[in-house]
Amino acid sequence: MLHYMISSGPRPVAPFSHAVEANGFVFITGQMPTNPDAPDAPLPDGVEAQTRRVMENLRIVLDGVGLGFEHVAMARIYLTQFERDYAAFNAIWPGYFEAGKLPARTTVGVTALAVGALVEIDLVARRG
């Protein structure tokens, strides 16, 4: 197994690797809407802005292991305000993937996330 910490990636909010690779599968740790260039700055306002920041953080990690969103097979999304934010999240999500090639996905409502985030996303990607 390979364990990755991406130097330009978001500062971890807990003890973990940004990604772990095993047998061609790359497991990307759930990312928060923090700014890698200003990790102590306030979070963006609203689920739309936080979703975009999370996706950009995921892009940084994917790039750091030589992959892109086209390699994503599965995603798990966590929303703290599920009923309020689900539609807004869904309006943004497809824009990161090729039309008709969305990854499998599970979205769940949770009571809280680290750093007071509204959204967190983790990914499973595959090389090749």
Results as ranks from 00 to 15, higher is better:
62 L>K: 09
23 N>W: 09
44 P>T: 02
58 L>S: 06
34 T>G: 10
19 A>S: 13
124 V>L: 11
117 A>F: 03
124 V>Q: 05
1 M>F: 07
121 I>P: 03
21 E>M: 04
77 I>T: 08
115 V>G: 02
80 T>M: 06
92 I>Q: 06
66 G>N: 12
85 D>L: 01
102 L>E: 10
119 V>G: 00
106 T>E: 11
55 M>T: 02
105 R>W: 10
121 I>Q: 04
94 P>C: 08
118 L>I: 02
105 R>F: 09
128 G>I: 06
84 R>Y: 00
69 F>T: 12
125 A>T: 05
91 A>I: 02
94 P>S: 02
114 A>G: 14
50 Q>K: 03
92 I>W: 13
103 P>I: 09
19 A>W: 01
100 G>K: 06
120 E>R: 04
52 R>F: 14
76 R>M: 07
27 F>I: 09
73 A>H: 07
85 D>H: 00
18 H>E: 00
111 T>V: 10
89 F>M: 11
7 S>I: 12
87 A>G: 05
54 V>E: 00
71 H>G: 07
59 R>A: 08
70 E>S: 08
84 R>A: 03
23 N>Y: 14
102 L>M: 09
106 T>L: 03
30 G>Y: 03
61 V>A: 14
90 N>I: 03
119 V>C: 05
38 A>F: 06
94 P>M: 07
12 P>L: 09
101 K>F: 07
109 G>V: 12
70 E>L: 03
75 A>P: 00
123 L>F: 13
72 V>F: 09
108 V>W: 01
76 R>N: 14
67 L>G: 07
16 F>A: 15
39 P>N: 07
43 L>P: 00
44 P>M: 13
119 V>S: 06
92 I>C: 03
45 D>W: 01
111 T>G: 14
28 I>P: 04
123 L>Y: 01
17 S>G: 12
1 M>Y: 13
33 P>R: 00
107 T>V: 07
16 F>Y: 12
36 P>G: 14
1 M>E: 04
37 D>T: 12
99 A>P: 13
76 R>Y: 04
68 G>S: 13
77 I>D: 01
17 S>C: 11
73 A>N: 06
60 I>V: 05
74 M>F: 11
91 A>E: 09
118 L>P: 04
3 H>A: 13
108 V>C: 11
118 L>T: 11
17 S>L: 07
9 G>M: 02
71 H>E: 14
70 E>I: 02
119 V>A: 09
25 F>T: 06
38 A>K: 08
61 V>P: 08
51 T>L: 08
71 H>P: 11
109 G>I: 10
44 P>L: 02
88 A>Y: 00
53 R>C: 12
92 I>R: 00
23 N>P: 00
118 L>A: 04
104 A>L: 14
28 I>E: 07
33 P>W: 05
13 V>G: 05
42 P>S: 12
66 G>Y: 04
78 Y>W: 03
25 F>H: 02
1 M>T: 11
87 A>W: 12
112 A>K: 12
47 V>P: 12
1 M>D: 04
21 E>T: 07
17 S>W: 13
88 A>D: 06
8 S>V: 09
